[in-house]
Amino acid sequence: MSDYFSDLFRATSHGLVLPRDHEDAINRYVAKRATDRENVENRPFPRKVDFWAFCIATALALKLEPRDGVPSRWGQKFIDTPQGVMADDLCSLLAVVAVAKLGLDDPGVTESGRIIELANRLAAAGCPEVLRKLENGPLNTTPLDQALDFARSLQDAARCGNRTGSSP
């Protein structure tokens, strides 16, 4: 995947945010330091940005509406885009999603700020669903098992959506 979009996102600083209300819960499932990788069963997401991306994908698969309101009110920034934490292909995917969600008539469809804002709102919409799944698994399963299981069920939901041919 080209670095066209990652260059675009790095060029201007935009904050990536997740809902403030869920900060503690999110921290439980994200590795904080290198040694947490030993405990991957309980902290299945290597970084916050990975959790953030998974939440966006969850919201899209479940057709959730982006969260309303002013992000600075409900969101907690965890990193800025110039720090390059987003992989090239994730940046590309966000650009594609923005086109699909905003449409070509929206003048902000090519603006990095608008795209990141949309991504943050989608992440905020998907976050409670992801956490609900991780926190309510059977006792004999780990958060990693739960996350993978959830991913599979989301794929099924996405496939189902594809078959019904819904549109933005």
Binding site: I56, L60, L93, V97, A100, Q155, A158, N162
Partner: peptide
């Protein structure tokens, strides 16, 4: 969980729409 092929498949509707 963080691979692009998963994220892309979950966003497949949006990809197709775009």
């Amino acid at each position: 969980l963080t691979r692009i092929d998963l994220l892309a498949s979950l966003a497949s509707r949006e990809v197709r729409d775009a």
